[in-house]
């Protein structure tokens, strides 16, 4: 379950309520609730105060009058008594539109969330999240990458000296730069003589990243740890990310190979059966 933590509410908890309308609305408790509070049940969270008793003793007519008076007072102060921001909310309303990362399932950057799940082993998401935090920290503390002009990074990437202090961008640049544009699918028997026909297909952004991370993790698997302890796997992944940005990684060759295959096989898109399949 996600933590139900309204930070603003805890900040405001100690604050004095300056809204007379909200204060006036408090006596509107049902008689049953007041009785329960008076009985002092252990699980009751309502605290009995003197004002509660007074309110209970007041007649409903007086309550209505009180509310009306307070509303009139608000109009006198130039406030709208029926404004949703003012009335009826103990801790006020959040400012809209809500930030996109306020949802429990989308609280992290999209690439961070995706790569974390790709790092995960045996369903241990917490461990993968810790690994991801270590990867980002490694990137923050690693020196400015020396870019290799023969391995151009993704178009519009931030300058190299800005990358370490923005580790998420660092990782995004690395992954998007080596992400392949196409995948090669083999259609069995279409090439004649039982051979399969290789046809290039474009990938969507998420699948492209997934493929790139898969290649990076393959390269990481072949690396050797320098030290020991739980930070070794994330450090190797981070080293590989740095290697990708600096153009030293073998992942670049894999990407080039796939693109070459794709270029060679693009004529196969004209195969009539494939054409039927696409359209």
């Amino acid at each position: 379950m996600p933590p139900r933590l309204n930070i603003l509410s805890s900040a405001l908890r100690g604050a004095i309520s300056v809204r007379p309308a909200a204060a006036a609305a408090r006596p509107l408790q049902s008689a049953a609730a007041v009785v329960l509070a008076r009985r002092g049940l252990a699980d009751s969270t309502t605290t009995t105060t003197a004002s509660d008793h007074d309110a209970a003793s007041a007649s409903p007519q007086e309550e209505q009058n009180q509310i009306a008076i307070s509303q009139l007072e608000m109009v006198a102060y130039g406030l709208n008594p029926f404004d949703r921001k003012v009335e009826g909310h103990k801790f006020g309303l959040p400012e809209l539109p809500l930030p996109s990362n306020m949802h429990k399932n989308y609280r992290y950057d999209d690439i961070v969330a995706q790569v974390t799940r790709l790092l995960m082993k045996d369903g241990k998401l917490g461990q993968a999240q810790r690994d991801m935090a270590m990867i980002l920290n490694y990137l923050r503390t690693s020196p400015v990458p020396k870019l290799n002009p023969s391995r151009p990074l993704v178009f519009g990437h931030p300058p190299a000296q800005d990358l370490p202090l923005d580790p998420v961008a660092y990782m995004r640049v690395a992954i998007d730069s080596v992400a392949p544009l196409v995948t090669i699918k083999g259609f069995k028997g279409l090439a004649g003589g039982g051979r399969s026909l290789d046809v290039p297909f474009p990938l969507d952004a998420r699948k492209r990243r997934r493929t790139a991370v898969g290649w990076i993790l393959d390269a990481v698997g072949k690396k050797k740890s320098k030290g020991s302890g739980r930070s070794m796997f994330p450090h190797r992944v981070a080293e590989e990310i740095v290697a990708v940005v600096e153009g030293r990684s073998t992942v670049w060759d894999k990407r080039a190979q796939v693109h070459k295959q794709g270029t060679a096989a693009r004529a196969n898109l004209n195969n009539f059966q494939i054409r039927d399949l696409i359209q």
Partner: peptide, 22 residues
């Protein structure tokens, strides 16, 4: 193979500066 103590030394290394930090 790493020499005895080498891996531990890497783990226990103390770095007091980060040139990226402002």
């Amino acid at each position: 193979a790493p020499l005895p103590g080498e891996r531990k030394a890497y783990r226990k290394k103390i770095v007091l500066t980060n040139d990226n930090a402002l």
